[in-house]
């Protein structure tokens, strides 16, 4: 994952800037054995911290296999692979942590995660 490109594209997205305005949270993204904390401050991706972590500071975590995240991050996802809730239904992604905060910042979170997809 090119996290530098992810951060740059997210932070130049006018939709995220408007719809994510005011959102601040720390997402622990688990991709197989890999761990990352995506730190969002006021609707911008402030930093991506790469693990491994012993006791990561985060508000909530999304965990799935490398294969599941790869399907989600495909530039043109197949039907059913375009949203984290689809992976909740299939059981391929799990949410843990502060569910209230997850819902409170869900719009910003989904717009941020959309930038895991790069056009080739």
């Amino acid at each position: 994952m090119d996290w530098h490109r992810f951060q740059k594209e997210a932070n130049t997205d006018p939709v995220l800037a408007r719809q994510g305005a005011g959102s601040s949270f720390r997402l622990l993204l688990k991709r197989g054995d890999d761990e990352y904390v995506i730190e969002v401050r006021e609707g911008s991706v402030a930093r991506v911290h790469a693990g491994p972590f012993v006791m990561p500071q985060c508000d909530f975590a999304l965990a799935g296999s490398r294969a599941a995240w790869a399907r989600f991050a495909c530039a043109h996802p197949a039907p059913g692979d375009q949203d984290i809730f689809a992976f909740f239904r299939s059981g391929e992604l799990t949410l843990t942590g502060d569910t209230r905060k997850f819902y409170a910042h869900l719009m910003c979170l989904k717009l941020v995660l959309g930038h895991l997809r790069f056009e080739p």
Partner: peptide, 8 residues
């Protein structure tokens, strides 16, 4: 949050 839930 409802809009965010259904957007995908």
């Amino acid at each position: 949050a409802g809009a965010a839930t259904v957007m995908g």
